[in-house]
Computed example of a mutant assay.
Amino acid sequence: MPPTVEPQRKHLVPIAGLFSAVLIISLILAGKIVALGGLTFSAAVIVFPLSYVFGDVLTEVYGYASARRVVWAGLTAQVVWIAAYTLAAALPPAPFWPHQAAFETVLGATPRFAVAGMAAYLAGEFLNAYVLAKLKLRLAGRRLALRLVASTMVGQGVDTLIFVGIAFGGVFGTAELVRIGLGAWALKVAWEIVALPLTLPLIAWLKREEGEDHFDRDTDFSPFRLRE
């Protein structure tokens, strides 16, 4: 029998790095609430949907198990960020540096946003990857655009619900929470749809480059299993 050709996966590490970078940037931006075009949403919407684009790419090309490992790596990056900020804020400022108050004002909500973001991120990313992998099996790899949007709608819906509830619960009233949540969810899904002309060719290119188009037929979908 001819030897089995192992996938190269030469682009997996750069994608994982960009994925983690997007998560950290999102934490920093999350504290600003934007009102635009009748929608109210966190400024993290500028970049956070990219994490779902990368998650889609990881699951579609490399499979759920690889995406799962990157999701946990992203969580580790978030923990390192929040620990570093907490230490930096606690250190006494130099006498000639007058920006301690501004530093704490801009980034002071980071711990709460980090808890909200990490809980929402884990639930949303794993659900997104699960739905995408299952739909790929059910549809025999067809209708990629539909699968990407459908998985994002589900994953981002849960992500937004958890994040808004933890990050802004008790800060804003119910009406404001609903507005923030619906606005953010709508923008995230729209972001996914707008990105399709880039996401679809990227996935096709990666499949050719890596020689891989993974189907999760025998995958253990537990989010807590780190080995493939």
Rank of each mutant, 00 (worst) to 15 (best):
V106Q: 08
L148A: 03
G117V: 11
L122T: 14
A175N: 06
F172S: 02
A129L: 10
D159N: 10
M118G: 11
D159C: 00
G124M: 00
V171R: 07
R147H: 03
T110Q: 11
N128A: 05
R142W: 01
M118D: 13
A101H: 14
F163Y: 15
G181I: 01
H99D: 14
L132Q: 06
R138P: 04
W191M: 11
A190K: 03
E176Q: 13
E176K: 13
G155V: 09
T174E: 11
E176P: 00
A123D: 09
R112Q: 12
N128M: 09
V171G: 08
T110L: 12
V149L: 10
P98I: 05
A175S: 14
A123H: 04
F126I: 05
T152H: 02
I162R: 01
L146F: 15
G157A: 05
L161F: 15
K134V: 15
T110M: 13
L182Y: 01
V158T: 14
N128S: 07
A186N: 02
A167E: 01
N128K: 06
V154C: 15
G170L: 10
A175C: 05
A94E: 14
T105L: 12
K188H: 02
A150W: 10
L122E: 01
L107T: 04
A123T: 12
A133S: 15
P95M: 03
K136I: 14
T105V: 14
Q156W: 02
A101N: 02
P111K: 11
T174Q: 11
L139P: 05
L144Y: 10
V149F: 10
A184C: 01
V178H: 07
R179P: 00
A186S: 12
V115Y: 00
L135E: 04
R112N: 10
A190E: 00
L107H: 07
M153W: 04
N128I: 08
V154W: 04
L161H: 02
R179K: 15
W191G: 01
V158G: 06
W191T: 02
P111V: 09
P93I: 04
G108E: 08
G173I: 10
W191P: 00
G165W: 05
I162Q: 01
Y130K: 11
R147Y: 05
L148G: 09
P93V: 04
A150K: 06
V154L: 13
F172R: 03
F163D: 12
H99K: 06
F103V: 08
V158I: 15
Q100W: 08
E104I: 12
A114E: 09
F163S: 13
F103Y: 14
T174R: 13
I180W: 03
G141Q: 08
V131F: 00
P98E: 13
E125F: 09
Q100D: 14
A186R: 03
I162S: 04
A109D: 10
